[in-house]
């Protein structure tokens, strides 16, 4: 057990004693503690996104033989995204005249909030998880599917043809890739024998990562592809498709409202990679280094691969995207579930 989580839980119990000694109701303490946790996670997400956008721009620069950001904040342009965020904060906010105002305004909420909520179950270390919900995997599936509703609201509420086209594509794509994603998760659940994140992680301890166990490699690939589609990354970025739909569903958004879509997208990217690490790469399991560091290393490795794919492969056509999901990934997913079930039934789950 590493020092930081232990210190945090020690702090929690000693503060609780201090609170109870003064005769204050414990539920108030719980509420304050929860808000504090949520605030810490929000700040973590913000900083991560600022960093990730910088990483993405540096990597894209590298792949395209450019330098990328290199002025703001020293030689490496480290403060570039912070400056961009400030700029967006001071930009005028335009709501189109004929837009459906309430829906237009609500959409960024619905896109960002679910992404923040799923960070609840990211296991950064052994006890370094905000709350290990008993529904774990199902909770993630349910909540991380919500942003697409916000995306559709954005597209519809804008009353703009580009936006509407982008939103229609987003929904079609999201519902198609949801199925292989869920099937891949079923395979993991078979081997873990539980849908709790804590159990899934402890089943992989000491190097027994699920990616090393046949036939979970199929599930890993399925998850990886479906997750890229879920976060609308190239080659599945059809809802945005700068070169054909201008910016897709958020074309009418400007200033801070646009920034929130951007924030949600990158936060979701981080989550998808973190969840991949949790399910297949043993989460925080690893020698010598502290668990939280291992977790971040693995997550960033997954993110780097996703970014590498983005800047290497061209965008698919929408009919190809849909066909690939239903004619290729869904049958493979069903086979993967059966194969995993067979292995578990014959040899049992250790």
């Amino acid at each position: 057990m590493s020092g930081l989580p232990a210190a945090a839980s020690g702090l929690h119990s000693s503060l609780l004693t201090w609170w109870a000694d003064r005769g204050l109701p414990p539920w108030v303490f719980d509420a304050i503690w929860m808000v504090l946790m949520a605030a810490i996670v929000t700040v973590f997400v913000l900083l991560t996104v600022l960093f990730l956008v910088w990483v993405e721009r540096k990597i894209s620069g590298d792949i395209q033989s450019r330098v990328g950001p290199n002025r703001t904040g020293g030689r490496f342009g480290l403060l570039q995204t912070a400056a961009d965020a400030l700029k967006l904060l001071t930009k005028e906010d335009i709501i189109p005249e004929c837009a459906d105002r309430p829906i237009f305004v609500l959409a960024p909420f619905l896109v960002f909030v679910p992404v923040l909520v799923v960070f609840l179950i990211v296991p950064f270390g052994e006890h370094w998880i905000v709350k290990d919900l008993n529904l774990g995997v199902l909770f993630v599936v349910a909540v991380s599917a919500l942003p697409v509703i916000g995306i559709f609201m954005a597209g519809w509420g804008s009353n703009n043809k580009w936006a509407l086209l982008g939103a229609v594509r987003a929904v079609g794509q999201a519902i198609s890739y949801e199925i292989p994603l869920i099937l891949a998760l079923v395979c993991v659940v078979v081997f873990a024998g539980s849908i709790r994140i804590g159990d899934i992680v402890s089943a992989q301890r000491d190097g027994h990562w699920f990616i090393t166990r046949f036939p979970l490699q199929i599930a890993f690939l399925l998850y990886f592809v479906a997750a890229m589609a879920e976060v609308n990354r190239v080659p599945f970025d059809l809802p945005e498709a700068e070169s054909e739909l201008v910016a897709g569903y958020h074309v009418e958004y400007s200033g801070m409202r646009f920034a929130l879509f951007f924030l949600a997208e990158f936060a979701h990217l981080f989550f998808v990679a973190a969840f991949c690490t949790t399910l297949f790469l043993g989460a925080w399991d690893g020698p010598w280094l502290p668990p939280a560091l291992w977790f971040l290393i693995k997550t960033y490795a997954v993110i780097l691969v996703i970014m590498w794919v983005r800047w290497t492969i061209p965008r698919l056509r929408i009919d190809q995207v849909m066909g690939f999901a239903w004619k290729c990934l869904v049958p493979i997913g069903l086979l993967a579930v059966l194969a995993t079930g067979l292995v578990a039934a014959v040899w049992g789950v250790p």
Binding site: A31, M34, V35, M37, P108, M256
Partner: peptide, 29 residues
């Protein structure tokens, strides 16, 4: 345990509302 979900949702909503309000205070119109 699901109180956490509610609190996270509420904090998320407050965060979005706060940033939008902050932007409203300083941006041109």
């Amino acid at each position: 345990q699901y109180a956490y979900v509610v609190v996270f949702g509420a904090v998320g909503i407050c965060f979005v509302a706060l940033t939008l309000t902050l932007a409203r205070l300083i941006r041109p119109n």
